[in-house]
Simulated assay, not measured.
Amino acid sequence: MQVLITGGTGFLGLSLAERLAQTGVRTVLFGVSPPPPGAIARLTTNPGPVVALPGDIRDEARFGTVLRDYGISHIVHLAAISAGPDRERHDAREILDVAVLGALSVLTAAQRHLVRRVVLVSSAAVFGPLAFTSSPLREDGAIRPDTLPAIGKAAQEAMLDRLAGLSGLDSVVARLSDVFGPYEYDTGHRDAMSPPWQCWHAARAGTLIRLPRPGLNDWLYAPDAALALDTLLRAPRLAHRLYHVGPGVRWSLEDWCTRLARHYPGLEWGLTADPTATTITLPPVGDRAPLDTRRLVQETGFRLGFDLDAAFADFIATVEA
């Protein structure tokens, strides 16, 4: 298996590359941003070779050349602009160009070069206001994306379904809950770090943490997201074109900060009702329902590698290393 990860130098791409390299898979990280210092050196300590190549997924000639020259058999499409409201106002064309035309470029190149499977990574954000319910969110539930990045993800899902139906391309959508991980950094294409990472960054710096709400969510640890994507890459047969990926349980940023306070003595943290006093950025609306992940578990046997305590311990060990 020769895997190419678009947007592979982002934090989830690095976690997936580490997972694949540990199992001996050859991996190409394709993206517009160079990997952070030391990342490739860390990854190359594993059995599988990892190569980082610069490139824009909208450059069809360049992308096709890489697929051919490296004998790519599988693609994980992660490339995206994770924009906040300010960027949405000023760079709407760029956001949707990458999301829609970029994904189209990836899918058509995969067809042309006979790639064996494409895993397109989507987001729970496609549910928009429909996510605020008391029931877990199912794959067959209605979606109503209400931001440009979410609209782009919804378009990708629909486009993959149509093109796969026309061409027979073996492809699947992995719709992820909110991901956090130790390899997070500012790529210039992501306007906010994950709230768990923000809390850790403040704790390490010894600054006050003030949360606008407890932040209850089915936070997905990046190595578990990588494990799920690897599972979808390798599954011999898949009965559906869409799978939810998440821990299936929720925990809060209060739970996370409790553990941070044990690790960083003297850390001050708490909730505040004053918007001007908030030090951690969360989505402005409330906390959504968790993703229903039974389809993935029942069909592939997927199991999380980390509960909250294990994820916290691994996160701290990795960032401190």
Rank of each mutant, 00 (worst) to 15 (best):
D69P: 05
R116K: 11
I75Y: 10
R117A: 11
A155F: 02
F132C: 11
V115R: 13
R162A: 10
Q111R: 03
H77Y: 09
P49R: 09
R175F: 10
D59E: 10
H113W: 01
G55M: 02
R62W: 06
A52C: 05
R112K: 15
A41I: 01
P149I: 00
Y70S: 06
F127L: 08
G55K: 01
G84A: 11
S105N: 08
I75K: 08
F132E: 14
V51L: 03
K153P: 02
A92Q: 02
G152W: 04
V76T: 09
S171C: 05
F180G: 13
H77M: 05
I72W: 07
N46K: 07
A124D: 06
M159L: 05
A92T: 06
R116Q: 15
L78P: 03
H74C: 08
F132W: 00
D161M: 03
G181W: 02
A164C: 12
P149G: 07
Y70P: 13
L114E: 15
T147V: 00
S171K: 04
S82I: 13
R42S: 12
A158S: 10
R175N: 09
D91Q: 02
A164R: 06
V121H: 09
D170P: 11
R116N: 14
A92H: 07
L67D: 14
S73L: 02
D97Y: 12
G141E: 07
A158T: 08
L166P: 12
H90I: 09
P182S: 09
G84H: 03
G152D: 04
L169W: 04
